[in-house]
Structure formats: C-alpha cells, structure tokens
C-alpha cells in the first residue's frame, strides 16, 4: 500500500504525463478561475452579491486540477474556496448561471433562491452545503450508485482541512474503503479553518495519514504547482476508475486572505502575518509558477499571457453583465409554496 509519496513529479527533468494541450487547457482554466475570483470580489465589495463569498486567492490550482479531467458523468463536489468556480468551470460547466445565482437573479442555476449553493444535476454536480462536511455522506451515495449501476463514474470529493474535523469525513473514509467505492478524497489543505490554525485542530501535520488507517492509498502534492496537481489528479482518477477503490490526495495550499470577505483574519487570538501573506502572493501564486514553466517550455510568451489574461477578464466581466441583466428573482409566496415538493412520483 502506498501511504505517502509522489509530490512535485512535474519538476523539471521528470517526464510529465501531461500533453502540451492539457497544460495549456489547465493554465487557461486557472487563469479564468482567478479572473472570476477577482470579479466576484469586485461584485461583493460593490454590495451586489447576496450572501457570502470566500475568496479563492492563490488557492485555486487544486480545484482546476480536480475538475479538468472529469467526464460529464463523473460526480464533482467542489471545495467552497471561490465557491467551487474553479472546479466547475474546469469540468466544463456554464458557471455564469452560478454567478447569477450569487446575485439572486432569475437566471441563477437555482432560480436565485440558493444564495451560494448550486446545482447542475445534468452535469452531476449536486450542490454545495453551508454545513461543512455535508459532502462526505453524499459521496458515499454517489460511489454506491456508481457501483450499483455498474458505471465507471468517478466521484471527485473536494474539501478543505477543516471538514476533516467532522465525524462524517471519517465515516465516509471508512465506508468508501469497506465497499471499495470510486471516491477521490481530494483535500485542499490550506492550514486554516475559519480563524483557527491546523496546529489547534489536528494532532499531526498531515491529514492524509488518516487514510492509512482505513487502508486507503494517499498522495501529497504541492497545491501551488498546477501541473503537479494535475498529474496527481490524472493518477487518482485512473486509480479510481479502474475499480481499485478510494484514494486520498492532500494538496498543500495557502490562504493568503481572511476566511470570508469582510471577516476577521486571525489565527486563534492572534492576527495573521500580512507580510507573510503578501510574500506568498508574490512568490507562490500558482498562475505565475505555471506561466514561468510554460514560458520555459516554449508554450507561452509574455505577449500571449497578456492576451489570454485580457480574454479571461473579459469573460469574467461578461458573466457579471449577464447576471446584472437578469431580473432579481422575486417569485410570489404562492409560487414558492408550489416549489417545496416535487410532483407526482413513480
């Protein structure tokens, strides 16, 4: 059993399983994800968003990697950083409908009534929960259903380190291992849960060691290295799709800002070190790291970078405009009463 290993396999000198096309796709997905994240920050700061927003910042490479190689029928439960926009756009979902949802619009993917929840059932993305860790029981169900229906669907179960405090996480590890369910436990560990640091929440340094107790193979990867994350995602998806049961991936990433917009930025009683966070933004930005690599490999130039960046920003702005153009969702109370239960059964 492989308990730890792999890592930045994409370091120069090692052969990468990624094609040039895949690298460019990943890079542009990350670029768009970060552009969307900036746009969402502008929207919430302008007071045009309903509900919360949890900035993704420089923590979006794992999400892009987790989503990019999934098939339409694979189940994705995104992590809530940047509200799963990175994961979902990478899976090919029309996320402008989710942007509109954040603004409470009729065009929203849940008719403007869910705040920051989402649902794209046709794309096998079923929702976000404000109750952290709610994903774990559901992914048992997705995995069970895949086996029951004898499909080769993969369940990409993304979550943060905080969610592993929930008993549900341990129940899901247990049952997934017991029933050999096709679940990727994709941990995006930024070392912070709300305003508490990992040293106050976990007895060890790595959460992936939990997997060993359940006989689940685990891998760790640098979450700031987009291509390393992507290689690991490919390996994890292949492992799971081939019927070998669950796998645990720990992406080590960074939270260079407060938990949610307008909130505290403490670690316990102490304010977090702004200088350190600024340094991370300068040196550990996954887009800059990936761009340097692509330039080195001759797949990107500064000029093309600027062009693509402008395109991504334009796409993000278009989603904002699309949402603004849609009327605020205000159905009548009578209509809402008709929406509580689904119609006739089987």
């Amino acid at each position: 059993m492989q308990t730890t290993a792999v890592a930045a396999a994409s370091k120069r000198g090692k052969a990468s399983p990624l094609t040039d096309e895949q690298k460019i796709l990943l890079f542009r997905n990350l670029m768009l994800a970060m552009a969307l994240d900036r746009m969402m920050m502008r929207v919430i700061r302008a007071g045009r968003m309903v509900g919360f927003y949890h900035e993704g910042g420089i923590a979006l490479a794992p999400g892009v990697a987790a989503g990019t190689f999934l098939r339409k029928e694979d189940i994705l439960w995104p992590h809530y950083r940047a509200h799963g926009l990175a994961h979902m756009l990478a899976k090919g979902i029309d996320v402008k409908l989710y942007v509109a949802e954040h603004m409470g619009r009729e065009a929203g993917c849940c008719k403007g009534r869910s705040s920051f929840h989402f649902s794209f059932p046709q794309d096998h993305v079923f929702g976000l929960s404000g109750n952290i860790g709610a994903n774990f029981p559901m992914v048992v169900g997705y995995g069970f259903a895949a086996k029951y229906k004898k499909t080769d669907q993969v369940v990409m179960n993304c979550s943060g380190d905080g969610s592993y405090g929930e008993g549900r996480a341990h129940e899901a590890l247990l049952i997934s291992a017991l029933w050999k369910l096709p679940v990727v436990f994709w941990l995006e560990n930024n070392g912070m849960a709300q305003h508490s640091g990992e040293q106050d929440l976990f007895p060890g340094k790595e959460i992936s060691v939990l997997a060993a107790g359940y006989g689940i193979p685990a891998m760790k990867v640098d979450g700031q290295d987009l291509f390393a994350c992507a290689e690991t995602a490919l390996a994890a998806i292949a492992h799971t799709r081939s019927g070998k049961g669950p796998i645990f991936i720990e992406c080590r990433t960074l939270r260079a800002q407060e938990h949610s917009v307008g909130n505290l930025n403490n670690e316990g009683p102490v304010k977090r070190d702004q200088k350190l966070m600024d340094e991370w933004k300068a040196t550990r930005d996954p887009l800059k790291i990936a761009a340097a690599r692509l330039i080195e490999e001759g797949l990107l130039t500064e000029t093309v970078f600027t062009e693509w960046q402008a395109e991504a920003d334009k796409q993000a702005d278009a989603m904002d405009e699309f949402s603004e153009a849609s009327p605020k969702a205000m159905p009548s109370v009578e209509e809402l009463y008709t929406q509580v239960y689904a119609g006739k059964g089987n």
Partner: peptide, 28 residues
C-alpha cells in the same frame, strides 16, 4: 446483499448516502 445492504453504525453517512444515491437516480 447488494440491494439489502448492511452498513457500519454511521447514521449521517447512511442518510447522506441515500441522498447521494437518489441524486444519481436510485430510490433508496
């Protein structure tokens, strides 16, 4: 035993598994 399934003592996981399985088209 695949349709009448014994589970560990893990009510949240079992209840949530029903939700997940229903979302994926089963009737738990």
């Amino acid at each position: 035993t695949h349709r009448v399934v014994d589970t560990p003592l893990a009510e949240p996981a079992i209840a949530g598994a029903a939700i997940g399985a229903a979302q994926e088209g089963l009737r738990p």
